[in-house]
Design a protein around this nucleic acid. Structure first.
Lengths: 145, 145
DNA sequence: TCTGAAATCGACATCTA
DNA sequence: TAGATGTCGATTTCAGA
């Protein structure tokens, strides 16, 4: 991971569809050389992929919340993942330090739908309680790493 | 926002560098027709842009935390944004319902750096307290919306 | 549909450990 | 001298009008 690769990543974060030629102009390389570096970074997993950044409200996802999960006793990470990944509205799950066992990011179309999702999450037998923070507004977000 | 546009978005979420021609094959449109639709969605802000998905550890960002902020009295959203956007390790800020006033996503290179960032966030005069959840592991995450 | 531009791939040159 | 990395030219594919 040298300085040139970091610069290529910086450019691709800002514009994921930048042409290899255009990137090459900025880092003083030919298009094939840029492509080779990008292919390597993808193969090594440093670049996980490319994606569009969508305005959630354009898809009708108007309600967003972060939910802390508190379990009774220990819960396996694999168990968490298995249970939660089946819920489409769950867009991210992290295990964390502190009081809570896990943090879940939920996107829903309405408050009612959010309520249903939280109820579904709570239905796990080992669940002790949940603690939700509904997003009022996204103040800012940098390009995802 | 018809079904075809949703399908185009679905494809672009999975592969942000998919060619218009390849997309067209999947949605039964010509490449120019797809481009016209994508351009429109970008112009309307439904597609905010395109980006690479980077493995944070490849850039040395090994430590990640979500921090709840509790203020004394009211704090303007603009004030929050002004203060926090100057800290590079702060990658996202949301104002939320519940006990906390705001939720901050922090990415740092080490626990020591994370500590420094939290101390910096705490230095605001109106800050009452913070509550941090350090990410132990990312169990899964869907393509960002 | 058409034209110019870009991506892609192979072959070869260069630098370095 | 082997491995990594670069350029160049030919061909295919794509973007944009």
């Amino acid at each position: 991971m040298d300085a040139t690769n970091r610069e290529i990543i910086r450019i691709l974060l800002a514009d994921g569809r930048a042409s290899f030629q255009a990137i090459g102009r900025q880092v003083n390389l030919s298009a094939p050389a840029v492509k080779r570096r990008v292919d390597q970074m993808v193969a090594r997993g440093e670049i996980a992929g490319f994606t569009a950044v969508i305005d959630p409200s354009a898809l009708g996802w108007n309600t967003e919340a972060y939910v802390e999960l508190y379990y009774d006793g220990n819960v396996l990470k694999s168990e968490l993942e298995t249970n939660l990944s089946t819920i489409p509205q769950v867009v991210g799950v992290w295990s964390v330090t502190g009081d809570a066992d896990a943090l879940v990011h939920v996107m829903a179309g309405s408050m009612a739908e959010l309520e249903d999702v939280i109820e579904l999450i709570r239905s796990n037998a080992k669940m002790n309680r949940t603690r939700s923070a509904v997003v009022l507004s996204r103040l800012f977000q940098r390009p995802r790493l």
